[in-house]
Amino acid sequence: MSAALLAETLIDPGLVTRFDAPTWTALLTAARAERLLGTIADKLDGLAMPPDVAAILADTRVDARRDRQQALWEIDRAMVALAPLDCPVVLLKGSAFAAAGLLAAQGRAIGDLDILVPRDRLDEVEAALRGAGWEWVKPDPYDEAYYRRWMHELPPLIHVERDRMIDVHHTILPLTARPRPDAAAMIADAMPLANGISVLRIDDMLCHAAAHLIADGDMAGGLRNLWDIHCLLIEHGEDQSFWNGLDARSRHHQLRAPMRRAVRLSHRIFGTEVPKDWLGGGVLDGLFAARLLTRTSWGQEARPFLRLGFYFRSHLLRMPPLMLARHLWTKWRKGYRPIG
């Protein structure tokens, strides 16, 4: 699988000096499909490479710079809109990495703006954003009702002029999921940056990333999430007290198992240095790793049945079974398919 080549190149960029054209093609295609091409461009900066590859990576750097600039601008716009509320606003995911200047932000593609606010302030936040030009994306009443009742975020809002999305979360996992992370503690303990912006504590960032990787999504695009985890760990995981704190925090959020698994997968795929006592167990890790590394040299995801398995698994984790059946039925009737 070319995803394995991608993982090896990320941790040992010097390998590329021996790449022939087909290997480069496989690497770039898989990296683009996993939304890690910007990270590759950043890692390979300054290394000798064929001119056709250099041109592609130069294009990618243009995109990464613009992504970052736009992400910072969207943060600015949201903060201006929400400033009158005097409500805590915590940035999540890529926007948080960029605002806090973390290693994980380097070359990272950043899509929507994700923010976390207290659940009892949701209505005010929604009203303030709508007053400042954001509006609903989903016109579908089933989807909207589903989101409001069961999800951990408002239905996505898009800005009418800038065409950029914001996801407003009140916790980090759907309410139907079994673990119940302590969102209030995450907000209360967030790290303030300048201009009223704050981001999660590093251990909470890791809990969020692990929940996202293992307990929430169907793991499509999971390699990028795992790379975020790897970057957070190598930037902050030097002494034992960090790991003890991470362990305690993940237990507090009922995310010990996902956190452990995410750390083991990061070690397994990216060679992250991890204390020995974090590496026990994990009989299913091989399956998870295989799911994360399905990308081929054509950028496709191989192993469709493995993927389908994870799709069902993802929904089972998030919803009680009857609700799942109802949800999938409604989706499929509208022509939606988990594989494409």
Partner: peptide, 18 residues
């Protein structure tokens, strides 16, 4: 010649489902 050139873009014409 893909043995010597890295293409700018990949296009795939694929079945809707495998």
């Amino acid at each position: 010649d893909f043995a010597r050139r890295v293409p700018d873009f990949t296009v795939r014409l694929q079945p809707v489902q495998p």
